[in-house]
Computed example of a mutant assay.
Amino acid sequence: MSGRGTRLIAATAAALALLTGCGRIGDLAAEPAGQNGGGQNGGSGGSGEDRGVNPLDNPDGTGPGLMALTADKDRAKARDLIGKVATKGRGAKTGYDREKFGYAWADNVDGIPWGRNGCDTRNDMLKRDGENIEYRGGSNCVIVTMKLYDPYTGKKIDWSKSEASKVQIDHVMPLSYDWQMGASRWSESKRKQIANDPLNLMPVDGSTNGSKGDSGPATWLPPRRDIRCSYAVRFAQVALKYDLPVTSADKDAMLEQCK
């Protein structure tokens, strides 16, 4: 075959590669762009997906979920934020009772997003983070089915009200922890605020939340490793908003997650 014929065949093959997406150019074009500098898969249960917002851009907690912080600049901002949290030893649990923070999921709370909007706090949180939501007939509050992406595990959960405990609302900074770190001296109205503040609430897999108890970050972190810095940021945001300290061990653990 002549040199001209060889060159013609090669050119035709290259053109076909571009049209069909084969070859290096096609591979590059097909690579998805990551959010926040690209994702990194977590450990147990980690999916590397992000269905939530950057907690650094969500200081009032009205945006859904948590997005993994993978960019160096965001992790540096996270460490700066955590560094502002005060520390002290954990106080006694004496006198703690959930009812000291008001009845569960009260709507009659002032000074927080969605307080007194006619829907209880639990449904507000499901509405904030859920997808494909269906309400009880005639209601725009009572959710009966939805899909939830759980940032703590990376699970996609099909939830229905008939299996309510499948999704629980986590107090990121647990109420018992709050009590031991100073909330025992607060007014009832302030305790009701932290118990129902969207900044301190996260709908998550029920069994995972059950394993947390009133632990701080030194003894419990979400199973999904790449969300742990975001979790530490949210813990710090709640502590700073309500002027609550954390233990030295918890602060060290929070900083460690955002290195």
Rank of each mutant, 00 (worst) to 15 (best):
Q168C: 00
G91S: 05
R225T: 15
R128E: 07
P113R: 07
D197E: 03
L244A: 12
G3E: 08
E163A: 09
M146L: 15
K241D: 15
R79I: 04
N200Y: 04
A30R: 15
D129E: 03
A76W: 04
W105P: 00
G46A: 03
R224E: 14
W179I: 12
G89H: 02
W220A: 06
G45P: 11
G5A: 09
L16H: 07
T247M: 13
S207Y: 00
G48I: 00
R191W: 02
L18D: 12
R7V: 08
F235Q: 15
G182A: 07
L244T: 09
L8P: 00
T145M: 02
K241P: 12
I227W: 08
P113M: 02
Y96E: 10
D243K: 14
A76H: 09
M173A: 08
Y231F: 10
R228V: 13
D124S: 06
Q40W: 14
S230D: 11
L8G: 02
G46L: 02
A10M: 07
N36S: 08
G61L: 12
P32T: 15
A253C: 13
P217D: 05
Q257P: 13
P203G: 01
D150A: 05
A92R: 05
K192F: 00
W114Q: 09
R24C: 01
P217K: 07
S2A: 06
G39M: 08
A253S: 15
A71H: 04
C258Q: 11
L175C: 06
K251E: 11
R51W: 10
G39T: 14
Y135D: 03
R225E: 08
R98W: 07
M1L: 08
D250M: 10
K251F: 11
P203E: 03
G43R: 11
D107N: 02
Y149H: 10
F235V: 15
L255W: 10
R225Y: 11
G3R: 12
A218H: 03
L126M: 05
R98H: 05
C229N: 12
A92V: 04
M202S: 01
Y135G: 06
D197A: 01
Q40A: 14
D74S: 08
S2T: 14
G83M: 03
N200T: 06
E49K: 04
G37R: 14
D205N: 01
A239Y: 13
K251D: 13
A15D: 04
D205S: 02
G46F: 02
R116G: 09
D214H: 08
S230V: 06
R90F: 03
M181S: 06
C258V: 12
K161Q: 01
K100L: 07
G61Y: 13
I9S: 05
V142C: 13
G138L: 11
